[in-house]
Design a protein around this nucleic acid. Structure first.
Lengths: 139, 139
DNA sequence: TATTACATTGTAATCATTACAGATTAGGTA
DNA sequence: TACCTAATCTGTAATGATTACAATGTAATA
């Protein structure tokens, strides 16, 4: 178990190290599925029955404040959490509901609007039907 | 009052015409501020005290199903509704919270990911600090 | 090990949205 | 015009994600 890996990540970013933070971070790192807070909570609670959902929200909150996770509001009612530093875009399948990572070269990250606004983040996402659903595999 | 304008829009799109739909559509057309459902509800209730918030949600739902309004989930907890057919992107000011329309030529709408997914919608949005806040006008 | 500020937990509150059932109405027809 | 019927509107209650809060526990430092 890569406890040291995640301990290092937390320390390097100036966060206190706790078992709950290690577990959430590890889950996000090993499961790049843009989970909801509840997904994380239900999974981690199996091996850690005393885990509180509030703690999951607290940990996700601090991780996003420190820039380690990105909060996605692509699918409406609930937030999804994305760990990983490589810049990528998201594709929401309107058939099965999955969010697929896509890497697009050529998306003009540098075409900033010249209106005097200071752009700090660029987000892009796509909606449609994913490959699996088109093949009749998905929902 | 452009009642006929909005009556026509509803009829042309195959929707039944009701006073509530006319009012919501007019509000969205005349106030391009990406309002929340509650913004719309509170404003319209002044001149129409019997208006129900459920009706506002129902109207927004049917308008979006018929493609007349776009639902934005850019700012997290609540949906915002955007009326207007011209393709544009959105800029969320993290200082004052406003969503500003921006028109970017050169944003590669056509750089589709070549992974077999069928893309039906392309969304892009930017976050940062808007011009007014940079000048010290905004919050 | 003692201290202290911060983190975790569980419950209760909040807030946007949806479900539902009864009253009302738009749009077509006699 | 008056009527009919399905669709719409209304108000209340339920849902579900997220947050507030107070009590307990613990990580990091001396």
């Amino acid at each position: 178990m890569d406890t040291e890996k995640y301990t290092g990540i937390l320390r390097e970013n100036g966060m206190k190290v706790t078992p709950q933070r290690l577990e959430v971070l590890r889950f996000l790192d090993e499961n790049r599925i843009h989970p909801t807070a509840d997904d994380i909570y239900r999974t981690l609670k199996k091996d850690n029955p005393s885990l509180s959902k509030t703690t999951v929200y607290n940990v996700l909150d601090i991780l996003s404040k420190y820039g380690l996770v990105e909060v996605l509001t692509i699918s409406g009612t609930e937030s999804r959490y994305d760990y990983g530093s490589t810049r990528h875009q998201h594709f929401l399948c309107t058939s099965c509901g999955r969010i697929v990572d896509i890497h697009i070269k050529g998306l003009c990250m540098d075409c900033m609007p010249e209106k005097g606004h200071k752009v700090e983040e660029v987000h892009g996402y796509f909606k449609g039907t994913c490959r699996d659903c088109l093949k009749g595999i998905g929902g």
